[in-house]
Amino acid sequence: MRWTSARRGAQGLGLLFGLFGITGIGMTHVLFPGLHCYACPLAITVCPIGLMQNLIVFGTPPYFWLGTIVAYGLLAGRGFCGWFCPFGTLNDLLSFRKVRILKSFSYTKFAVLVGTAFAAWYFADTVFCKLCPAASIEASIPYLLLGVAKVNRPFLIHMGTLVGTLVGMVLISRFWCRYLCPMGGLLALFNRVSFLHLRLDPERCAGCLACAPSCPMGLDPHNDHDDHNCIKCGECVEACKMGALSLHYGIRRRR
């Protein structure tokens, strides 16, 4: 329970940080380390995917963006998905069926990432934002309640993608994070070098597979403890009776 409760606390902090605008403190220059729409009336941070598209539209080389993303990648990699991202937290709350991952589909999120960048360049518009389910929940619905937005075509498209993603999340745990999230794809690139990492002690592992059903990303932790899909949530660490899996922070040792 140790890791789970620590993680719930961190996810609460992530939500608080994401919705810091509620305190009345204005916008910051900080990029959010997760998928969190900056159009959200309470958001004070900048969505990395939204900024990426805008920079592509403007044709600005993204030095600041790149530095921040690589920093986040090194600090925790996809750990941010498991420990911080509010949309990941929503995925977590709807994780009822921890089914095994469809491995080949998990690369779709890289296609989504590249597609997002390409569409931004080709249409000179933030196309992904108009489909993003995180924006549906954090921007479209709040602005409808504020009386600014209306129920029209763009709004209905947002609701469509939201409903589709929610259904997916209920059927497959962390559906969005596994297969579609471009931010997850971005952070996944750094998963093998990030300081937060899962370690397996092969001498303790009995190969009992007790860890596999616990993984919300549908991995087989004793084989895939270095997978690009690992969100370092620590569920498998809790599940392992032999203490073979552990979370570590720091530069990895050579094997």
């Binding site: 916008m27 910051t28 220059h29 990029l31 900056y38 159009a39 958001a43 941070t45 900048v46 969505c47 939204g50 900024l51 805008n54 600005t60 993204p62 030095y63 600041f64 963006w65 933030t126 934002c129 108009k130 924006a135 921007a139 479209s140 602005y143 409808l144 600014v148 937005a149 209306k150 129920v151 029209n152 075509r153 763009p154 709004f155 947002h158």
Partner: peptide
């Protein structure tokens, strides 16, 4: 000054994105 540019981008609401 890209950090301020990032904030400026974030401060402008994408009207067509949220269905306004």
């Amino acid at each position: 000054n890209q950090h301020e540019q990032a904030q400026a981008i974030g401060a402008v609401l994408c009207l067509s994105c949220v269905g306004i």
